[in-house]
Design a protein around this nucleic acid. Sequence first.
DNA 1: TCTGGGGTCCTAGGACCC
DNA 2: TCTGGGGTCCTAGGACCC
Length: 420
Amino acid sequence: MSWGLVDVENFYVSCERQFDPSLDGVPVLVLSNGDHCAIARSAEAKAFGVKMGAPVFKMRDLIERHGFALRSSNYELYADMNRRFNQVLAEHTDEIEVYSIDESWFRLPILPDGTGDVAVARQIRDDIKRLTGLPTRIGLGPTRTLSKVANGLSKAGEKIFGGVIDLHDAELRRRLFMNWPVDEVWGIGRALAERLRPLGIRTTADLAAMCPHQARDVGTVVLERLVRELNGVGCDDLVIEPEKRKACAVTRMFGEPVSKIEDLREAMVRRAARAAEKIREQGSVAARLIGFAHGNGRKPNAPSAQRSCRLSPPTNDSRVIVRWASRMVDSMWEDGGVYTKCGVMLEDLTEQGREQTDLFAAIDNRGADLMAAMDGLNKRFGRDTLALGSAGIGARSFDTKRAMKSPAWTTRLDQIPIAR
DNA sequence: TCTGGGGTCCTAGGACCC
DNA sequence: TCTGGGGTCCTAGGACCC
């Protein structure tokens, strides 16, 4: 079987454009939580040199002068569009691994001549465009890594290759890899690229030519596998049924900086409650809670603290988790500190019912019905219909700002677009 | 004035065991 | 003056990804 990777061009921007034609042809940015940074850019915006993660406040002039359109991120919409394009993909193959919000791996049979099925890949691309409106690119190859590289190359050579590249041919790989920078390869970040440079490894061809054992010395077993994969030796399998998450984080910047302990506590409690809710969704309990709060790290003397504790027996009860998170606030708080962000992480997740018990404390399931009732109400009537008292009520100044969010066009009856 | 959020995997080193 | 050998488990931190 051949590996394939399909990814959507500028996914968030493309989603926004499906329902708002005024965004066509103008530079568009989709912003991070709190509307601080650009996390997706249209081709027009990239042409102006806007980098991934660029802070909005540094681009005010540019945005104004060239009529940029800005949108807050709308994950409800993006998740639904993700579901839609995977549904189209599923009409062509059963072997699909949903890898991220904008890309999926899949497998297709190899043709008798040993190449990937470019014709089917083109058909997938056309169908996704026709049925969801989303523009995609596809890479094919004998290994996961090669299909990923193929995908990256097809982005760069869109005009030549028509959005699909097949890297089964070793000669084609040799030619393309000579001019493909090593840091473009999936798995080579800044640190590894830095370590490879003194060894004279600058292109993907150089990396592919590396001895796997040396690769392990320079990096870890991950780099060794990467080198093998570049040479067509598969070191990875398709994961159709994803495992449950092993950790769950809820961390956010504040809309307005916080300088009162009650506010920090309330923010912390909200995040802790949300994290507990998230792990209940996947039927897990957590054995470890981490909480942190800090100010602007770019300023001297900004407060910064982190605490962790074990939850024994493991739990997903909001009341327990919130109580610990609140206790952490007391021990972290610095008088006079200005805080800009806080969050919690639940780790060591295990399936509820299979958790390690505590010799001295019985597992108390009395809260389970209560939590289920709470989740049920919030699911039916909207988030925060029912919340813990310590989480406070209503919107607060420190809540994340999302001033430019588009409607949930595809998932809320009261927000569907009207055509005339 | 202002710089996101949420994951995974791997390794080294410490603590502990017999 | 001299102090083994071989394990496991846990944690923190680094690196990477989207």
